[in-house]
Design a protein around this nucleic acid. Structure first.
Lengths: 354, 354
DNA sequence: GTGAAAGCGCTAACAT
DNA sequence: ATGTTAGCGCTTTCAC
C-alpha cells in the first residue's frame, strides 16, 4: 500500500540507491548486468519515481505554469491544446491557472490596473510557491501587457498578447499581411466598392489590420473611402449597428463587399444585411477575421482569416522548454509571429469586371 | 537571488522554524507577540512556502489532476472553467493532462481498448509520479467508462461520462427529463406532427433522450410515429441527410416540427430545410440539445436544451475536495446528476390549434 | 508555548 | 563503476 521508493528498488536489485538513480536518469554509465537488474525490478514493480522528492532535490519541477486570462476566451483552448501537443512529447507537465477574467476584462482595457494585482499574485504563487520552471501567459486580447507582469527570474512566454518588456517573450500572430491578403482576395473577386467595419480603433490589431487593408487598396489602385468605414467594438452587436448605418447612409451606392475586422462583427453585419432584405453574397459580400468556430455554422459559411492558435501554443511551449535547456532555435528569440492564413468559404462573391 | 526559506523567516523573527510553521499553518497556538513578529517578516519578505518541500513532507500535493480526453471537445472547456471556479477558492491547484484524443476517438466507441493504455499511463503518472491528491476525468462523450480506468487508491471523479464501477464517482447531467421538457414545450406550441432525429441509437444519451420524448408524447396523448424517426450519428452531416430523407419521404404530410437529439444534427436539419426552400420556423420548427455556442449564431437562433457544464465542473471539484477532507455533502455521494434546462430561442413556432 | 532534530524520496558530490 | 551520505525545505514528534 505504501508507495514504492527508490530504496525498495535498490534493495530488490541488490544495488545502491545511487545506482538506481544513475540508470533512471542515465546520468552515469552503469554495468550492463546491474542495469538490467534495476530495469527488471522497475518494470516488475511499476515503480514511478516520486517527482516531488526529485523536484525538491534538483530545484526543477518540470512543470510549466499556464496562466490564462480566461480559458473561455476564444483563443485560449486551442492555444492550450497546442501547448499540450508539444508538452506531451516532453517530460514536462502543465499546471493550469485560469484567472477567469472574461467578465471583468470584457472590453475593458482601462481597468487592467485593477486586474494587475490578481495576475501578479497568481504569477508569484506559480513561480515562488509552486516553483514552476517557466510560465506561459495566455492572453485574451492581442495587446501589449508590458506593464502588467512583474519581473521574475524564469522564462515567461506571452501567447496571443505581446510585450515590449525585455524579460518576457511572446508568440503572436500576423495581422497586417493577413488582412492585406484577405483584402487582395476580395478585390480580385472583382469588388471595388468595399466598406470596412473596424475593431476598437486604438487597439493594435485594428491598426495593423487597417494597414494591411490600405496596402492592398493602394496596390490595386483603389482608395479607401472614409465614408465607407465604421468603427465597431469587436462585438457582434456593433457589426450589426455599423452595417445598418452603412446601408442607411449609402442606399444609393451600396458597397458590394464589407470587410469586418473580426468574425463576430462580420456575423453582426450579416444579420443586418439579411434584415434589410439583401442576400449574402449576391448583393453584398462579407469577410471576417479570426476563423472562429461559428464562422462555419453561419449561413453562408464565412470567408475569413485563420489565426493559427494551435501553432501559437505549440511554439510557446517549444520556446519555453528551449529557453530552459538553453539550446534550440528559439532559445534566444524574443518575439515570434505565427503566420495567419486565408480561409475561403462562401460569403464573398465573384463579380464580373465590366 | 536564492529563494527565501522558512529558516530565513525564523532567523529574522528570532524564533525556530517550528514556530514559523505553526503560525503559517495555524497548527498550534503561538504567543501573540511571536506571531506578529513572524507575520511581519513574512509579509515584508513576500515569503512563499515551498510547496514542493511541504508536499514531500506531508505526502499531499494539494494538486487535483485534470485528465481530459480532449480539451477541444465541446464539453471540456466549460467543465474545466467550472473546476477552476471552485478550485480558486481553495488551496488546490490543477495539473492539466490533455489526452488529445478527439481525432482518434471521433465517434469510435469501439476503439476504446486501444486508448485504454494511453489513458491509464497518464492516470498512473498523475497518481504515482506527480502524486496528485485526486483526479477529475473529463470525458468527451456521455458514456460509461467503467472498464477503462484502472483502480487507484485516490478519489477519482468522472465528469460528463459515468461509471458503474464502485471506486469511481461521476458528475453527469440530466437527459431524460430535459428531453421530456423540451418535447412538452414543442407540443405546447401546438405541434402534433413531430419528427425525431436520434443520435447513435445504442448510446445512453440517445436512449434516455428518446425516453423523455416518448414520455411527453404519451402524456399529451400523442404517439411517436416511427416513420417520422431517423437515426443520425450526432454529426451535422447526418442531420442533413436525415432531414432530407424525412422531407422526401413525407412530401405529402410534412412534420411541423423536428426534434434533433443534439444541436449539430439540428443545424444539419436546418440546412436541409432551407435547401428545400422551406422556412424555419414558419414551415418547420427545429429543436436541438446541448446549447452549443453555435446555437446562438445560426439563423434563426436555435431552441435547445442547455447542459450546465460549468456546474458539472464545479461540482466535480467540490466533490473531489470533499472526498479528500472527508466531510461535506458530497463526501459520500457517488453519482451526481446536474439538471439541464430549456433554452428557448427562435426555431420553434407557435401554431394555432384548430 | 516553543525548539531541536528526524525524516519525507530523491540526487550528486565525494570517496573508493 | 558504484556506494555512502549530506541535504533540498518543510512538518511534526518529542522533550522541555
Amino acid at each position: 500500500m505504501t508507495p514504492i521508493t527508490i530504496k525498495d528498488i535498490a534493495r530488490e536489485a541488490g544495488v545502491s540507491t545511487a545506482t538506481v538513480s544513475y540508470v533512471i536518469n542515465k546520468s552515469r554509465p552503469v554495468m550492463p548486468e546491474k542495469h538490467k537488474r534495476v530495469m527488471d525490478v522497475i518494470s516488475k514493480t511499476n515503480y514511478q519515481p516520486n517527482r516531488v522528492a526529485k523536484s525538491l532535490r534538483t530545484k526543477k519541477t518540470n512543470i510549466i505554469g499556464v496562466l490564462a486570462e480566461d480559458i473561455l476566451s476564444f483563443p485560449a483552448v486551442r492555444i492550450i491544446n497546442g501547448i499540450s501537443e508539444y508538452i506531451e512529447k516532453t517530460d514536462y507537465n502543465i499546471l493550469l491557472n485560469d484567472l477567469r477574467m472574461l467578465d471583468s476584462l470584457y472590453n475593458k482595457y482601462d481597468q487592467v490596473i485593477h486586474q494587475k494585482d490578481k495576475i501578479n499574485k497568481a504569477l508569484s504563487f506559480l513561480v515562488y510557491g509552486a516553483k514552476v520552471d517557466a510560465i506561459i501567459y495566455v492572453g485574451m486580447f492581442d495587446r501589449d501587457i508590458s506593464e502588467i507582469l512583474s519581473n521574475i527570474n524564469k522564462p515567461i512566454i506571452i501567447a496571443y498578447s505581446t510585450s515590449v518588456d525585455e524579460h518576457t517573450c511572446s508568440v503572436s500572430y500576423e495581422n497586417e499581411n493577413a488582412a492585406a491578403e484577405l483584402t487582395k482576395y476580395v478585390i480580385n473577386c472583382g469588388h471595388k466598392h468595399i466598406a470596412v467595419i473596424t475593431g476598437i480603433a486604438h487597439t493594435a490589431p485594428a491598426q495593423e489590420r487597417l494597414k494591411g487593408i490600405n496596402r492592398s487598396f493602394k496596390e490595386s489602385g483603389l482608395v479607401l473611402d472614409s465614408t465607407y468605414v465604421r468603427n465597431g467594438d469587436w462585438e457582434r452587436a456593433s457589426g450589426y449597428v455599423c452595417m445598418k448605418d452603412l446601408l442607411d447612409s449609402h442606399s444609393d451606392a451600396l458597397p458590394t463587399a464589407v470587410l469586418a475586422m473580426n468574425d463576430l462583427m462580420a456575423i453582426g453585419a450579416m444579420d443586418a444585411i439579411r434584415d434589410n432584405g439583401l442576400r449574402i453574397p449576391e448583393d453584398i459580400s462579407v469577410a471576417g477575421f479570426d476563423n472562429r468556430e461559428v464562422s462555419e455554422f453561419v449561413y453562408p459559411k464565412l470567408t475569413t482569416v485563420e489565426i493559427d492558435l494551435q501553432s501559437i501554443g505549440y511554439t510557446a511551449a517549444l520556446m519555453a522548454t528551449q529557453k530552459l535547456s538553453g539550446h534550440g532555435e528559439y532559445a534566444d528569440k524574443r518575439n515570434i509571429i505565427v503566420p495567419s492564413k486565408l480561409q475561403i468559404r462562401d460569403t464573398v462573391s465573384l463579380i464580373s469586371n465590366l
